[in-house]
Simulated scan of single mutants.
Amino acid sequence: MEATLVTSLDEVVDNVKQFNQDLQDGLDVITQLSMFKHWYYIPNIDMFGPSKYIGYKNMNTLKYDRGKAKTGVDTEKVLKRWFKDLSNGSDVEKEFKIQLIELLETYDMRLRSNACIHLPKQFTV
Rank of each mutant, 00 (worst) to 15 (best):
E2I: 11
V16D: 14
V73R: 00
V29P: 05
N44T: 07
K52C: 13
R81Y: 08
G26C: 04
D46F: 14
Q18Y: 08
N58Q: 02
L33G: 13
L111V: 07
P120A: 01
R81D: 14
S87M: 12
S90R: 03
E105S: 10
V29G: 14
L27C: 11
Y107C: 01
N88I: 03
M1Q: 09
A69E: 10
R66G: 06
H118L: 03
I117D: 09
P50L: 00
P50E: 08
V78C: 09
F36T: 06
I45R: 05
K84G: 15
A69R: 00
T71C: 05
K94Y: 06
D14L: 13
K77M: 06
Y64I: 13
P120H: 02
Y56V: 03
M109D: 12
W39Y: 06
A3H: 14
V125D: 10
K80D: 13
K63M: 11
T71L: 04
T71H: 04
N44K: 07
G49Y: 10
F123P: 03
W82E: 07
Q21M: 11
N44H: 12
D10A: 15
A115C: 01
N60S: 05
D10H: 08
L9A: 04
F83T: 14
G89D: 08
T71N: 09
V125S: 11
L5D: 15
L5C: 13
Y56I: 03
G89T: 08
M1E: 12
L104F: 08
V6I: 06
T31W: 09
D10C: 15
L86Q: 09
W82M: 04
Y56S: 01
T61K: 09
P120G: 06
D14R: 11
W82S: 01
L33M: 07
T61F: 04
Y53E: 10
W39E: 04
G55T: 03
F36R: 09
W82V: 01
D14V: 12
N88C: 14
E102C: 00
S113F: 01
S34D: 10
